[in-house]
Computed example of a mutant assay.
Amino acid sequence: MPTPDRTSLAEIVEAGRELLERDGLDGLTMQAVATRVGVRAPSLYKRVSNRDALITLVADATLRELGDSIDAAPDARDGDPRARLRAMARAVRAFARRRPVAFRLIFAPGAELRLDPDSLARSSASVLAVSAELAGEEHALDAARTFTAWANGFVSMELAGAFRLGGDVDRAFEFGIERLADAVAASGTR
């Protein structure tokens, strides 16, 4: 008679996500996750092949959550595409503040993550749609990449405490997203 499963993949991934935020990437180990879900480490290998696969699953879940946060942002369904882009930027920033380590993981340069293409497409859909409205279909991907690069750069600097000249960082964020929305919209009229 086979031994009953004592944990699910969803529980393993959620434990990994919690450990990632609490202990950083170095603390995200198979042993730590096993302890967290109440099984011995070898039991995890029935569900997850190795630590790299675990990290990829955690990153993929994070990517899906970020996409859901963007979609659920207040004004994200507003008729004005500039207002929607601003709402999406605020949602990205709020998400990064809630899950800073996971945010860094999914945007880490050179990360060897093999993220699920469906999750990537799903998490990008709203940004691509509003980019197409602002910049036109021909420039939608370029505009979405510009938005993502700006948001990631600003938020990453903020998380790192890199804005050291004083002033109001919230005001700077709003200034930036206003100018970015204007620039993306202007590119669609050329």
Results as ranks from 00 to 15, higher is better:
residue 145 R to P: 00
residue 186 A to V: 04
residue 45 Y to S: 06
residue 187 S to P: 08
residue 58 V to L: 10
residue 89 A to E: 01
residue 159 L to D: 01
residue 123 S to N: 02
residue 58 V to E: 02
residue 36 R to N: 01
residue 7 T to R: 07
residue 165 L to V: 00
residue 154 F to H: 03
residue 68 D to F: 03
residue 17 R to W: 08
residue 57 L to E: 14
residue 84 R to W: 00
residue 121 A to W: 04
residue 39 V to S: 08
residue 156 S to I: 03
residue 85 L to G: 00
residue 28 L to W: 12
residue 108 A to M: 11
residue 43 S to L: 07
residue 63 L to N: 12
residue 146 T to P: 02
residue 153 G to K: 04
residue 173 F to Y: 05
residue 89 A to L: 08
residue 106 I to Q: 01
residue 21 E to Y: 13
residue 160 A to W: 09
residue 96 A to L: 05
residue 108 A to V: 04
residue 175 F to H: 13
residue 60 D to N: 12
residue 123 S to D: 02
residue 152 N to D: 08
residue 13 V to R: 11
residue 133 E to A: 10
residue 133 E to V: 08
residue 178 E to M: 04
residue 43 S to V: 11
residue 190 R to A: 11
residue 18 E to N: 05
residue 66 L to M: 14
residue 68 D to A: 15
residue 136 G to C: 06
residue 46 K to A: 15
residue 37 V to G: 05
residue 67 G to C: 01
residue 50 N to R: 03
residue 114 R to C: 05
residue 147 F to H: 07
residue 67 G to R: 01
residue 148 T to L: 12
residue 159 L to W: 09
residue 7 T to S: 09
residue 143 A to F: 08
residue 135 A to P: 00
residue 48 V to H: 06
residue 141 L to E: 13
residue 97 R to C: 00
residue 69 S to Q: 13
residue 147 F to S: 01
residue 74 P to R: 11
residue 30 M to P: 09
residue 5 D to E: 14
residue 157 M to E: 11
residue 168 D to W: 08
residue 35 T to D: 15
residue 76 A to E: 07
residue 122 R to D: 09
residue 30 M to T: 06
residue 126 S to L: 09
residue 128 L to H: 11
residue 72 A to D: 14
residue 165 L to G: 12
residue 66 L to Q: 07
residue 105 L to M: 08
residue 62 T to Q: 06
residue 89 A to Y: 01
residue 126 S to I: 02
residue 39 V to K: 07
residue 54 L to R: 05
residue 179 R to E: 10
residue 136 G to V: 08
residue 98 R to C: 06
residue 130 V to W: 07
residue 120 L to C: 09
residue 19 L to I: 14
residue 98 R to T: 12
residue 111 A to G: 04
residue 107 F to H: 14
residue 65 E to W: 07
residue 10 A to K: 14
residue 159 L to G: 02
residue 35 T to E: 15
residue 33 V to T: 06
residue 54 L to G: 02
residue 140 A to G: 05
residue 95 F to R: 04
residue 52 D to I: 01
